[in-house]
Nucleic acid binder design. Structure first.
Lengths: 236, 236
DNA sequence: GAGTGGTCTAGACCACAGA
DNA sequence: CTGTGGTCTAGACCACTCT
């Protein structure tokens, strides 16, 4: 007896996972019921329930009340895409993050912007353009509009010390966010700021964050394709 | 009494979420303990435990045994990036998916490929190159190598009917996957196959899937930037 | 030692699915 | 009607943190 230190529900999860991973139980097949598991492993039904419930939230099985638990159709791979604050991310690599402020000003919202920020046309909005550098090399061009109602003190921030994301998370707690990732070419101005060629492909992430009743911010973040990639992994 | 149909643990989760979303409890602040919650809501400790535990797996709070539960530092936005089978995805948009087979052959693995597939150098591997079309328009160029040990019948598949992803998920249950997303320019051959210009930026996803003891497949999927984007959302 | 979370039990009642 | 999952309780013991 050396390793059954793992909690019972984890052992059950592992046992089920193995059967699925080995292909012994295929998508659509029934998984033992809570009652069956609690007998098989001499555990209470609550413990079996926890094991199955967690596997369900992980997407490995599907459960239908009254019907049973089955191996999920694995027709998609879903993975946690974690978007971290750029300062943190660079620091985690042991590198130095610095910021160049290109613009930090108040402007009047045009029609399209007013719409996506949820303010009236012509209303004041904050506009910042920053270049983030990793060890002195530009890795992100960030063009951001902020709703003054969500973060009134935004423009007073020293962006060379505190990243916009960080300020916003502090002052406008995040309730909702959506993003889109695309490939594009930089504008001449962006290319100049990032010190890349006009024909160098870039990843662009457009993000819109909501804080309570307000749209807090819309941002466009451009990454040189040669210097940045998103990555992630998935484990059954 | 009209709406307390929601389970008790959900109500507690919602109550805590609200306090965080409104900014009343800031990152680092303590959240009421299980004991406090079970008294406050007249529920058992197990129910309070479930509420807090689920919020923790959602990343909204962090828990430390012996210390307590606190509002998580929201310095990252994590979102489910769902990678679906391309056929399913196109079908879900109500469009027609079709496939053009450019190559489907057995080859000998070079050094780099042998390494990433986990086979001996010179060992046979399956190589397919497909172009996926949505309503007749090319949207993905898929260059894939498959480990014959993981999916011996791969080359017998009619790829115009069954997508590689679909075949692999059927015959080599997925245990692990990792991916990288970058921006790049297409090779002349890829540009031709996708019917785009040589200078048009593309998203490229490189993926590696593991099935049990074998690396099942490594794939490079190229999407024209003008016709495809990844998107997702996040809700606190 | 007091307070916290981590786990587990042996019951219970309910809603629902399928024969 | 039987079997299934969904929820909940009122205890319990343990490991850990903090003072």
């Amino acid at each position: 007896m050396a390793k059954d230190e793992r909690p019972a529900y984890e052992q059950v999860k592992g046992w089920i996972r193995q059967h699925i991973a080995r292909g012994e139980w295929k998508p659509g097949d029934a998984v033992p019921s809570e009652a069956a598991l609690s007998e098989r492993f001499a555990i209470s039904r609550m413990t079996a329930n926890r094991a199955l419930r967690e596997l369900a939230t992980e997407g490995l099985v599907t459960r239908v009340q009254g019907s049973g638990t089955r191996v999920a159709e694995l027709h998609r791979i879903s993975s946690q895409l974690v978007i971290r604050d750029i300062h943190e991310e660079v620091a985690a690599r042991g590198h130095v993050h610095s910021t160049r402020v290109v613009k930090a000003a108040q402007e009047k919202a045009g029609a399209a912007l007013a719409d996506s920020l949820g303010v009236r046309k012509g209303a004041p909005v904050f506009h910042t353009v920053l270049v983030h550098l990793e060890n002195g090399v530009p890795i992100q061009y960030e063009d951001r509009y902020v709703n003054p109602q969500a973060a009134p003190g935004y423009l007073q921030t020293d962006f060379t010390q505190v990243s916009p994301t960080s300020h916003l998370l502090q002052h406008a707690p995040l309730t909702e966010a959506s993003y889109t990732i695309e490939a594009t070419l930089p504008t001449p101005e962006e290319a100049r700021a990032l010190d890349i060629g006009n024909g160098d492909p870039c990843l662009v992430m457009m993000r819109r964050t909501v804080s309570g009743a307000h749209v807090a911010s819309v941002a466009r973040q451009l990454y040189p394709g040669s210097r940045y990639s998103f990555s992630g992994q998935f484990q059954a």
